[in-house]
């Protein structure tokens, strides 16, 4: 019965989202995949890019919740019980995480043709002295 249930849900979402269901499904699969590729390529998280992606994610969360209110002719004043607040948080989180991942991957892919962004680590005066150079850039 599990298979049946999943296909029932798929059927409902197909009716709900129309043609958009497949791009959304593709995004849900490709975004984590893209994130994995970018992380592997960069051999870690690029801090500045992550910060920008998180800020974008905040915006995405707000847009998701606002869109839900707009589409359903409702407003924050309609939130009643705890389940409503939970739902709003889930919508915010889904929009936020999706946007953050999408943003991070997009920025990573745009940066990919160039050499991987090097990590700039200040080894300090003592380190520079030890290395016998003025500036140090460690890959």
């Amino acid at each position: 019965m599990k298979d049946l249930e999943i296909w029932t849900l798929v059927a409902v979402f197909q009716e709900m989202l129309g043609w958009a269901v497949w791009p959304i499904a593709a995004f849900c699969v490709l975004a984590p995949l893209g994130l994995a590729i970018v992380l592997l390529h960069d051999r870690g998280i690029v801090a500045g890019r992550m910060l920008r992606a998180e800020l974008l994610g905040l915006l995405g969360g707000v847009v998701a919740v606002t869109a839900m209110f707009a589409v359903t002719s409702s407003s924050p004043a309609d939130l009643g019980g705890p389940i409503d607040w939970l739902l709003a948080i889930v919508i915010f989180a889904a929009g936020g995480i999706g946007t953050a991942i999408g943003g991070y991957v997009a920025m990573g892919l745009l940066a990919a043709p160039r050499a991987p962004a090097p990590a700039h680590i200040d080894v300090g005066r003592a380190g520079r002295a030890a290395l016998g150079q003025g500036e140090a850039t460690l890959p």
């Binding site: 029932t8 839900m68 409702s74 019980g81």
Partner: peptide, 30 residues
């Protein structure tokens, strides 16, 4: 979802969940 509580989530179900479910039902898929 408490049955006798006025909730936003129930409104959401009515507003955006009901019709797709209905249409899927017509197609024998729900």
């Amino acid at each position: 979802i408490a049955p006798l509580e006025e909730l936003w989530i129930t409104w959401i179900i009515k507003e955006i969940g009901l019709k797709p479910t209905y249409l899927a039902m017509l197609r024998g898929r729900a």
